[in-house]
């Protein structure tokens, strides 16, 4: 990081990107044309704001870029923020997009005979091992986590383990795989993430963007 270097805004690839762009544009940021070109292999983009660039990275990596100050601002779901629990990240604006929930699910036939209150230790497949372990430890359950990066729903049917912790939006994928939600861990939305040292050392600029994003959320919600 340099005192006068450009600010970097990290945006997540994939489903959230479409939802977040109206907010980004409402905040007055218009990326260069290559940003919307699906064939472009570019990773860093200039914008109409001379002192701000955009990078596009995986949603989990947004948190890491912001925590280490490689990006000053970012958009990340609170699932990702809670998983890493980086002390260097502030999440001052709830962007009100990417609504879903993080839930524990298990096969439908298991639910009948299973009482979550009686668990003492469980094995779960999840993309969120730290968050899952913390959540269960708080209610006195030891969770042994198997880290998967996708297709969690397959784990119970193929006998990898019986329970999963995953994001649910409509519940259709769960249902299609014969799974039932038994416990909600957290409601998820995307947040504007800010690097702590950046906010403290460049308070006018960063504070300005926080205000603009908050105004964009209010304006688009109205």
């Amino acid at each position: 990081m340099n005192a006068n270097e450009k600010l970097v805004l990290a945006l997540p690839k994939g489903r959230i990107l479409e939802e977040v762009m109206p907010l980004v544009r409402h905040a007055g940021i218009e990326p260069e044309p290559a940003f919307d070109d699906s064939k472009s292999r570019q990773l860093r983009f200039t914008t109409n704001v001379p002192e701000l660039d955009i990078i596009r990275v995986r949603s989990f990596d947004v948190a890491t870029f912001v925590a280490f100050g490689a990006a000053h601002l970012g958009v990340a779901g609170n699932d990702v923020l809670m998983e890493f629990d980086y002390s260097e990240i502030y999440a001052p604006v709830d962007l009100g997009i990417g609504y879903c929930r993080l839930a524990v699910a298990e096969p439908a036939e298991m639910v009948k005979s299973d009482d979550p209150q009686q668990w003492s230790s469980i094995r779960v497949a999840t993309k969120y091992p730290a968050l899952t372990r913390r959540h269960f430890a708080r209610r006195g359950v030891h969770a042994e986590c198997i880290k998967l990066n996708g297709a969690m729903e397959l784990a119970p049917t193929l006998g990898l383990c019986r329970r999963i912790v995953d994001l649910v939006s409509t519940g259709a994928t769960m249902k299609a795989n014969g799974l039932v939600e038994v416990e909600t861990i957290a409601e998820i939305t995307s947040r504007l993430a800010v690097n702590r040292a950046a906010w403290k050392t460049r308070p006018k600029e960063i504070g300005g963007w926080v205000t603009k994003f908050k105004e964009a959320v209010d304006a688009l919600a109205a």
């Binding site: 609170n78 923020l81 002390s87 990240i89 502030y90 999440a91 001052p92 604006v93 709830d94 800010v194």
Partner: peptide
Amino acid sequence: LNHKDTGALDG
């Protein structure tokens, strides 16, 4: 508060 997470405060 530690994360300045206004969304979590709303919750």
